[in-house]
Design a binder for these strands. Sequence first.
DNA 1: GTATTATTGTGAAATAAATCACAATACATG
DNA 2: CATGTATTGTGATTTATTTCACAATAATAC
Lengths: 210, 210
Amino acid sequence: MITNKNCIIRLSRYKNSLYRLQSLGFVKVFSENLADAVGVTAAQVRKDFSLFGISGNRRGGYEIGSLLEKLNTILGKDQVQKVVVVGAGHLGGALMRYNGFEKEGIKIAACFDIDPATYDRASRIPVLPIEELRAFVKDNAIRIGIIAVPDVAAAQVAEQMSNAGIRGILNFAPIRLKVPEDVTINNVNLELELENLIYFVNILNKTKAK
Amino acid sequence: MITNKNCIIRLSRYKNSLYRLQSLGFVKVFSENLADAVGVTAAQVRKDFSLFGISGNRRGGYEIGSLLEKLNTILGKDQVQKVVVVGAGHLGGALMRYNGFEKEGIKIAACFDIDPATYDRASRIPVLPIEELRAFVKDNAIRIGIIAVPDVAAAQVAEQMSNAGIRGILNFAPIRLKVPEDVTINNVNLELELENLIYFVNILNKTKAK
DNA sequence: GTATTATTGTGAAATAAATCACAATACATG
DNA sequence: CATGTATTGTGATTTATTTCACAATAATAC
């Protein structure tokens, strides 16, 4: 079982690049081409594939169509993934309006909040009371949730999600969530990303200056 | 020169946890406590500090105040960091309204777009024509930029930023940007994060099932 | 002031990830 | 059908990161 997050992210990148190559009319690809497109080494590409038992054709490279099928299976993209969002504020709203998920086979099935002013059952993506989270998650067999609430509410929401049966959480709140070990958390923290950039900009600047 | 991104992110996390501990009235902290708060091992905390020449007091732990000073210096938080956003759409708008940056000493100085309908020089955060990016960046000595435009425009914006003198880019567009090597890029890609979650939820599920 | 104890700081060891390098092999060419 | 060539697949090697383990040492107790 491969649990190297970077490796899985590379698989996603390969997949995205392959779609681009396919739409340009390409049918086959060499590890070298894919490596260039994604920004890694050719050996890394082959090693990653080898890890997942994906094989190509010596001297002939990889057939894009079948490669995509395999990657999509590994990445769970052979079916539409339904997710829920908790938090109908600025961020939750932006996520609901964002149309990049659809073409990736990800569907926001509903949004939940505690503020009745936000409720809207008639909307394309319904906004429902948080009390209905559990039932909705069960009824729709949902396993992925997005936390888009202020940090003070995040811990409680994480617990509600976990109790409801959600097994993967994308967390936008800038705090560490504690969940059972069978729940996976990916954090998106813009302050951290910016802070990180600042550090690297600073040290690279100093290095050049010397 | 430490160039391990994860290590720098841990420093940010230590810093955030330390502020929390400080606000609870704590004055000193042990590597063990910090480790618990951040979710790493105590040895990792000490090793990270050691890497940056930060030392505590054997048997007495670390004094939170001076530790924070050192971390803030390393992370470039001893002065307010001004950044620009390019793209005044949903995402750019949400970023401008987001008030989490301010308390981290990060200030969005201006936003740029190509659509005259978005221009607003009188706003708290002015929205300006992209043509003015270069002059603004120079005049305000800005080094960090956020790309919040659709993917088709991202490559061009990255080039404009890089030419204008920006040295760190936070990129929300789901494509790989090519920039000179003295420009650092951090990508935020929600589709990728979700896809990644799906993978881990799937494999953990299978593992448990067997 | 001596002994005891808790905690740091950091080389050494272990583990994880990436790269190398080359045998295996499929296709092309004559 | 033999020879040459390009590309894969992967064990071996290298590099990076984390963890271990324990000497050094500062605070505390007696």
